[in-house]
């Protein structure tokens, strides 16, 4: 805690790694500031050093290389929404980024990296990234490593944002013909979502051939339902299957959140409603 924080602005990844390695706890990376600054203004956080990564070119840009799409962690939500490459090859991600709350200002400032690092259960991007099987590059003073986002997301004490830096996100393009959907349940226009689900479905005639479903905002971390629901593959969607998907998805939520967005019992039930709704909507788009 300090009343008089210092400010560091590394010019490249090397400088960033060096600064992070040389500082004790209390240093915080600031990118778009949409997560950090409200906490500072509220008095919940008082960083001793702000490390502004806004000047590092390596954190910016969206590109395609060797059949994979890379998104720099400093990419703002608005660019994720509007980028041609993402719109054509990762339409689920582009759509999910458009569902982020807070309005135009947040879309123009908030970054994909910040959204991941915050690991906020009610944020919008993680379920889609997990459904898409994202990988991320993480830089620390010992070097850069690539990890599956799902592995990183297992523990909130990931050290990102103070001890290490999220550099970029790697994603494989969605399969042509895959249906996708991101469903978000909001009680009011101004609040956080109470439950959401991202789904990617492929069909062979009417039978499901692959299914990815991740449910968010109902527990501390997004819940990947894909394994639980894997036996949907080979079946055609039906009222019976829909009910089963809903019930099994709800049952998968062991420790539902209970907060201003709704109590635990309802959140658990909504996990099922969202999973079912997302799959249904994805199936309609598939083919």
């Amino acid at each position: 805690m300090s009343l008089y924080p210092a400010f560091a602005r590394p010019r490249d990844l090397g400088q960033a790694a060096e600064i992070m390695g040389s500082l004790s706890t209390g240093a915080m990376i600031i990118a778009g500031g949409q997560e950090l600054m409200p906490s500072v203004n509220y008095g919940a956080l008082m960083p001793e050093v702000y490390i502004d990564v806004g000047q590092i070119a390596a954190l910016k840009g969206i590109s395609e290389e060797a059949g994979a799409i890379q998104i720099g962690s400093f990419t703002v939500h608005r660019d994720v929404q509007n980028n041609d490459l993402i719109q054509s090859k990762l339409p689920l991600l582009s759509y999910a980024a458009a569902q982020i709350g807070g309005g135009m200002q947040v879309h123009n400032r908030g970054t994909i990296g910040g959204n991941i690092v915050a690991m906020h259960p009610l944020y919008d991007i993680l379920p889609s990234l997990l459904a898409l099987g994202a990988e991320v590059d993480v830089l620390s003073d010992v070097g850069e490593v690539r990890v599956a986002l799902a592995d990183l997301m297992k523990d909130a004490r990931h050290g990102l944002g103070s001890e290490s830096l999220l550099v970029r996100v790697h994603l494989k393009p969605m399969m042509p013909g895959a249906g996708w959907s991101y469903e978000k349940l909001k009680i009011t226009a101004g609040g956080y979502g109470s439950a959401n689900a991202a789904a990617i479905v492929t069909l062979d005639s009417s039978k499901i051939t692959s299914l990815r479903v991740v449910v968010g905002a109902v527990s501390a971390l997004p819940v990947d339902m894909s394994d639980t629901l894997s036996d949907c593959c080979g079946q055609a969607w039906s009222a019976h299957l829909a009910e089963e998907v809903e019930a099994r998805s709800s049952a998968e939520i062991k420790e539902p959140l209970s907060d201003h967005q709704g109590d635990g019992e309802w959140r658990r039930a909504m996990a099922g409603v969202m999973a079912r709704g997302a799959i249904e909507a994805a199936i309609k788009k598939a083919g």
Binding site: I187, T188, A189, G191, Y192, H260
Partner: peptide, 26 residues
Amino acid sequence: LAENITFDENGRQLTKSLMDYVMPRI
């Protein structure tokens, strides 16, 4: 439909911001 000021069982107020106390938007 939405605005509600809530407390825990010890009388500590849980509603602390406009993200908790959600007023209607347009």
